[in-house]
Design a protein around this nucleic acid. Structure first.
Ligand SMILES: [Mn+2]
Ligand SMILES: [Mn+2]
Ligand SMILES: [Zn+2]
Ligand SMILES: [Zn+2]
Lengths: 148, 148
DNA sequence: TTGCGGATTAGACTCATTCTAACTGATTGA
DNA sequence: TCAATCAGTTAGAATGAGTCTAATCCGCAA
């Protein structure tokens, strides 16, 4: 079930879109609310199928467009694992991803600042990095996905 | 220029292939020597083009097959960055990858055991990880690629 | 020699993603 | 009120890395 956006989330969306000169549309609200409703790192197709329940006429192209828009205004991160379909994550806190081999589920792993520092410290002089991506592959026992 | 395999590298190849019940072929030797000649994380197409110089009849399908074989016997790692073409790396030491935004070049970054430990330590109880992938995106000044 | 089984090969196919070009609908301002 | 404008949406075509298929090839052992 897709919840509609809370007042705060709607403001967050509006603020980020306005900041990059883009408009709030019902499609964008719907797609964004899908991402917030179940924080399980859905693929484009999963987002599409969930969003269609609330908005039957929505097209796949628009889902691609919305997600690309959100990424470009920093509302959402793309998550890639090997060459599988790209997944989307609305968690803006620094975090790593843990991919469960059995279930395929992707979990957020909080990334403390000191670990980030320790990672930056392995870069030789002359290397300057803006983005660090960390992903674990393994098994997670009996964890349920974090719903919103 | 593709160098042919040293005695040691040929043994390494043979040993790994035999261990998983597969045969040494001239195609596999050629593809493997391409990977060792220039350790710049080439894509399949780059491997194909380099290997064809030494072996003109070689097919793209075989390059895919060889690389898959090497990955499955642990001779080589796949390296993915977002949704770009997969790259291949024969460096078996634990290391992260640094992707230069300007040049697209991929550099190996040594990964000290204590950093690996610090990463594992952020996993909540119940999460058990076999593989950790770390990739940096940024700029590297005036570094040449590591040739062999 | 001959037969077997793994390896190689060309080309067809898949499918996530990108591109294109037509359409929609809100906004503006004459 | 009406028409122009223009970002956004849409269906469907195109792209391209990777996979699959089915026909040879070839080294080895009986
Ligand atoms: Mn990634
Ligand atoms: Mn990767
Ligand atoms: Zn996440
Ligand atoms: Zn590497």
């Amino acid at each position: 079930m897709i919840q509609s956006l809370t007042h705060l989330d709607r403001e967050h969306l509006q603020e980020a879109l306005n900041r990059s000169g883009q408009k709030v549309t019902t499609q964008r609200e719907t797609v964004f609310s899908v991402l917030l409703s179940e924080r399980d790192h859905p693929t484009v197709d999963e987002v599409f199928n969930r969003a269609r329940e609330a908005m039957p006429g929505l097209s796949l192209a628009t889902v691609y467009n919305c997600l690309e828009t959100f990424v470009s205004c920093g509302l959402v991160r793309q998550v890639n694992h090997e060459r599988e379909s790209t997944r989307y994550c609305p968690n803006l806190a620094p975090h790593a991803h843990f991919r469960d081999k059995e279930t395929g589920r992707v979990h957020d792993i909080e990334l403390p600042p000191e670990v980030i520092k320790s990672l930056r410290s392995i870069l030789p002089p002359g290397f300057d990095s803006e983005v660090i991506e960390i992903s674990f592959l393994g098994r997670a026992q009996g964890k349920e996905s974090t719903s919103n």
